[in-house]
Amino acid sequence: MMYNVFLWVEACFIGSFLSYLFRPYTKTLRWPWYWMLLFGGAFFAEFAYMDGVGFMHRTTTGMSVFVVIGCVYYFWLIWDGSDIANILAYAPFWWVVGTLYFYFGSTANNLLFQQLFLLHEPRFEGSVRYATMIMLNIILYSIWSYAFYCRYRERKSIAYYSTAH
C-alpha cells in the first residue's frame, strides 16, 4: 500500500519535471493535467481490478513506457538544438538521459515482475528485481548528479556574466 502512495509521488514528480522541460518547445501548458488524467485513470482502474490489494505493477509498467516515450519526445523536441551550445554540459538533457535509462530498465523489470521477484540472489539478500533496481538507481542518481552539476556550473557562469558588467 505504501509503495502505491510512493507511486503517486513519483508520477507527480516525473510528470511535472518532464512537462517543465517540454514547456519551451510546445504550445500547450496542459501536459501535467494530461499526465495525471492518464496515470490516475490507469491507477484507479487497476486499483478496482485488484480490489485495492498489492502493488499496482501494471500501472507502473505503463507509466515507465509513457515516461520513456516522453524522454524520446524530448529528444525529438531538442533535435535541431538551436539554443544548445554544448549538449554535453546541458543539464536538462542529462536529466532526461538519467530518466530514460531508469525507466527503460524498469520497464523490463516490471514486465518480468513476477519472475524476477521469485529469482533469489543471495549476494543482494533479496530478489534479482531488487538487485536490478539498485543498479538502475545507481545509474539514475549518477546521471542526475551530473545533470545537477551541469546546472550548478551554468548558474555559476550566468552569475559571473551578470556581475561582470
Binding site: 524520446v72 529528444f75 531538442i78 533535435w79 535541431d80 538544438g81 544548445i84 551550445a85 554544448n86 549538449i87 554535453l88 538533457f93 538521459v97 530514460l100 535509462y101 527503460f104 530498465g105 523490463a108 536490478t132 543498479m135
Partner: peptide, 24 residues
C-alpha cells in the same frame, strides 16, 4: 539484461550527442 537495456538508450544518447554537436 543489463547489456540489452543499456545498449539501446546508450545508442540513442550517443547518436543524439553526436548529431546535436554536428548541427551546432
Amino acid at each position: 539484461g543489463t547489456l540489452i537495456f543499456l545498449i539501446m538508450p546508450t545508442v540513442l544518447v550517443v547518436f543524439m550527442v553526436f548529431y546535436q554537436r554536428r548541427i551546432h
